[in-house]
């Protein structure tokens, strides 16, 4: 299982001739039970892959939206174990949708990489994205994850030049995550015209599918990216829905899944007639 689930999902989508819609939400936002409800609803809303954030006190690469989500989750005592519990509960009803955990290194250092990798595998996690773990520092984590069949998804960015590319894609598996803007999450907007050549370069160098994220907020942007990339990742726009629905005492799960389905629809219809 595990990273095979990612490979199978991308192979199936390739056969369908469309890109994946990757939805990001934070474990424990607005609380553990609602986050689980949201994650359980995401596949039916059209999410092909789920990225589940695990909170960290100092999320240096996040914009204000996900910083606040992190703080909400920590205020509700969300932990690494709590995050794995959500994945385990989700897996009881879904054996096919890949789940990628996304966060920062220190909670994993604190747990110990080997212990964490075993626990993550047992819970049904398929891969990890660790923002502050560049390839230069990744070997110990890669060793632990690979031993459990989990993928360490590598990040590439607009500043990743040709000289650096081989280091970035070494030991990568699952897919490559292209951070489409130099900046934090949810602030700048990705430009599909700039994204296309970058995706092509990464695809060629890695032989893996390329997901694009960090600057996609609207269905239009998601569709534009889905035309050129293998996956479009949306995080902050979904987390904003959670925040505003919670503030207005609306049904949080309903609101965020509605938003997810709009984005999924845009991704699914992006390449119609262009294949």
């Amino acid at each position: 299982m595990t990273k095979d689930r990612i490979d199978r999902r991308f192979a199936a989508l390739k056969a369908e001739g469309r890109a994946a819609f990757v939805a990001y939400v934070m474990a424990g936002d607005p609380d553990a039970a609602t986050a689980l409800e949201i994650v359980r609803g995401l596949p039916a809303a059209g999410a092909d892959i789920i990225e589940l954030g695990f909170p960290f006190s100092d999320p240096m690469a996040e914009g204000p939206t996900i910083q606040r989500a992190s703080q909400r989750a920590l205020a509700r005592k969300m932990t690494l174990n709590g995050t794995l519990d959500i994945v385990r509960a989700f897996r009881e009803g879904d054996q096919d949708t890949p789940v990628i955990l996304m966060g920062y290194l220190n909670p994993l250092v604190n747990r110990g990489f080997e212990t964490f990798a075993k626990q993550a595998h047992d819970a049904g996690v398929d891969g990890l994205i660790v923002v502050d773990c560049p390839p230069e520092e990744a070997d110990p984590l890669s060793d632990a994850l690979e031993a459990e069949g989990l993928a360490l998804i590598r990040l590439a960015s607009p500043t990743t030049d040709d000289k650096r590319l081989p280091a970035v894609i070494r030991r990568t598996s699952g897919f490559v995550y292209y951070v489409s803007v130099a900046g934090v999450t949810g602030v700048k907007s990705a430009d599909a015209a700039d994204v296309a050549p970058a995706v092509e370069r990464l695809r060629k160098a890695s032989g893996l599918p390329v997901a694009v994220g960090f600057g996609i907020r609207t269905p239009e942007q998601a569709a534009a990216v889905a035309r050129v990339a293998d996956a479009a990742v949306v995080g902050s726009a979904l987390v904003d829905e959670i925040e505003s629905a919670a503030k207005l005492n609306e049904n949080v799960t309903e609101k965020v899944l509605l938003k997810a389905s709009e984005l999924a629809k845009a991704v699914r219809s992006a390449r119609v007639g262009t294949k």
Partner: peptide, 10 residues
């Protein structure tokens, strides 16, 4: 060591 986001690595 060097624990920063990929964007900052170069």
């Amino acid at each position: 060591g060097l624990y920063v986001a990929e964007t900052l690595m170069p």
